[in-house]
Simulated assay, not measured.
Amino acid sequence: MSRRPRVWFPGAIYHITSRGNRRSIIFNNQEDYDRYFSIIMETQNEFPFQLHAYCLMSNHLHLLLETKTTPIQEIMWTIQTTYANYFNKRYQVDGHVFQGRYGAKLIDSQKYFVDAGRYIHMNPLHAQIVEYPADYKYSSYQYYVNGNPPPFLNISKTISLFPGPKSYQFFIEKSSTTTI
C-alpha cells in the first residue's frame, strides 16, 4: 500500500519531527549538531525556506519550517538524506539513521503556529535536560531571548505576532505543560 502524498502548497508551514531509528542517538557531539545546522543552511540555499524554530535533541528533532516554492518532501529528503550519509560515514555504520518517515503536521492557524513553537522550545525543559529553556544550546529559543539568530533562522514572523520579544518569552515560559 503506497503512502499518501504530503499536503503541500507554497507558503505551507509544518511542525516536522524525526526520531533516531529504534530511538537511537542521532547527535553524538557538537560536530554532529553543527553538521545538521550546516545541512539546513546548504538546503536553504538550494531550496529556499524559512526555519522559524528548531530543537535538536540527542535522539530526535523538531523543526518549524515554512516552504516557499519547493515541496516539503524535497526539502526534508535533502536534509535527512544528507545527514544520514554523513552520520553513516562518520561512524562507519550502515542502515537507517532515522526511524521511518519524518512527521509533518501542517500548521493551519496562527494559534497552532505559536503553540507549535512553544512546544518545540519547551522540549528540553520537559525532558528535564535544563531548568530554563534558553539554556539548551541546540534550540532556537536562546535566539528569541538573547537575539543574534544564525542566518538560517527567521525569528521575525513569530516575534511579529507578539507586542515584542519579552511578550513571546512570557508566552513560552508561562506554561510548562503545553502539549500538541
Rank of each mutant, 00 (worst) to 15 (best):
V7Q: 11
N29G: 14
C55P: 11
H60W: 01
N28A: 08
N123D: 07
F171I: 03
E173D: 10
R3Q: 12
K157M: 09
A104P: 13
K105F: 07
I16Y: 01
E74L: 14
H52D: 02
M76C: 09
I107F: 14
F87E: 07
P71A: 03
T82G: 09
H15F: 06
I120N: 06
G117K: 09
Y112H: 07
S156I: 02
S2W: 02
N21M: 10
D32F: 05
S109K: 14
F37G: 01
D108K: 13
F9A: 05
E74C: 08
I16Q: 01
E66P: 12
H96D: 03
L64C: 07
Y144S: 03
G95R: 14
P5T: 02
H62W: 04
F152I: 02
Y138H: 15
R23A: 09
S140N: 05
N146C: 03
P149F: 04
H126I: 10
A127R: 15
E31R: 15
S176A: 13
I16C: 03
S176H: 13
F37I: 01
R118H: 12
R6C: 02
S18R: 14
L63H: 15
G95I: 03
Q142T: 01
P10R: 03
Y33P: 14
K137M: 15
I26M: 12
T17A: 04
Y14A: 05
H60K: 08
W77D: 05
Y112G: 02
L63I: 06
S109M: 14
Y54G: 06
Y141Q: 06
L65R: 08
Y138W: 15
